[in-house]
């Protein structure tokens, strides 16, 4: 057991699978000797060799295309998109091939691959290093989209993603890469890829979130508690497929729901959750479903990024608003 950060848990899971499955290879830009720009692959090339932890030429489409090719021939590649802002050249391979290979060939060829990408704002990075575009991928049939929000969930979910026989996009909330440490047992135990995690029980309102907004959401729940509002907090964790049953069950109990995401609001994961609540949970609701999100603007450079991202106070205000509406 070790007390580690989220990014160290990513590294620990990669090391576990590299050690236990010879078909696993890690590839990407700077993932080798340098250990990745965020150190998510730190020490792996030294431990497993440069045939297993592979520095590639600087070409994202090529990385994704080769990852599809490796997976189609029975390897289990784990590729890194250095930042989610650089994932766009990879999209053709993710959407047109990784997602479709099994279906296209009626099961003859499969694509057991993982593409990892750090995402989200709040680290004072240059342009295109801070967006949250998980909804683009959640819309695509044939791929799973997973977002861990704690060291132990990063470890267990990444193990499951690598072992899954189908393609998984594994999005790592980089703002909380080193936010806190947690005891993680390196026992190779995976977590399910189709379940929400209930992080806190409550009775008045359900706060639904994922990724780095877990931090502000839990803070808001703590503060609300002191004011006598009991908030349940759900970490969605798997954006696709999304575990709506757990969310609906919680809303049935609390009667109120606020969805918190860093991403822009329009056509986002929160839109899907809201629509499903309207469809399947309307009669449980005591108040309108509310969303606390980024603006539908281009993510600003870092001088304004804190003003773009949802804050703890915005979450508290929104909860108070619907509590008043329905008291």
């Amino acid at each position: 057991m070790s007390n580690i950060t989220l990014v160290e848990a990513v590294s620990l899971a990669l090391a576990y699978e590299l050690k236990h499955d010879n078909d696993v290879v890690v590839l990407g830009e700077d993932v080798g000797i340098n250990g990745g720009v965020f150190r998510a692959t730190s020490g792996l090339a030294q431990e497993f060799g440069t045939d297993r932890v592979i520095d590639t030429p600087l070409a994202e489409a090529m990385i994704a295309g080769m990852t599809v090719g490796l997976a189609a021939q029975g390897m289990k590649p784990v590729a890194e998109a250095q930042f989610m802002g650089f994932i766009y050249p990879m999209i053709e391979h993710i959407v047109c091939h990784a997602a479709r290979m099994r279906n296209r060939t009626r099961g003859r060829i499969t694509c057991p691959l993982v593409i990892r990408a750090p995402f989200g704002g709040g680290i004072h990075a240059p342009e295109l290093h801070s967006e949250s575009v998980e909804a683009i991928f959640a819309h695509i049939p044939g791929i799973r989209v997973v977002i861990p929000s704690s060291p132990s969930r990063a470890y267990g979910l990444l193990l499951a993603a690598i072992r899954n026989p189908d393609p998984v996009l594994f999005l790592e909330p980089k703002r909380i890469y080193r936010l806190h440490k947690e005891e993680v047992i390196d026992d190779g135990e995976e977590l399910p890829l189709d379940m929400c995690f209930e992080l806190r029980e409550g009775t008045d309102v359900t706060l639904v979130t994922w990724g780095s907004m877990i931090k502000e959401t839990l803070e808001a729940a703590d503060k609300l508690e002191k004011k006598g509002v009991s908030a349940e907090v759900i970490d969605v964790a798997t954006i696709s497929p999304i575990d709506m049953d757990t969310i609906l069950e919680s809303v049935e109990k609390t009667g109120r729901c606020v969805i918190i995401q860093e991403a822009a609001k329009h056509c986002s994961v929160s839109s899907e959750i809201s629509a499903t609540l309207a469809d399947r949970g309307l009669y449980s609701l005591l108040a309108p479903v509310k969303r606390v999100t980024g603006y539908d603007t281009i993510m600003p450079l870092f001088k304004l990024e804190k003003k773009y991202m949802p804050t703890t106070q915005r979450i508290i205000d929104t909860v108070n608003e619907i509590m008043e509406l329905s008291s």
Binding site: M62, A64, G65, M66, T67, V68, G69, A72
Partner: peptide, 8 residues
């Protein structure tokens, strides 16, 4: 690029 991955 798939062929390149397969070759790798």
């Amino acid at each position: 690029t798939h062929a390149a991955g397969a070759a790798l």
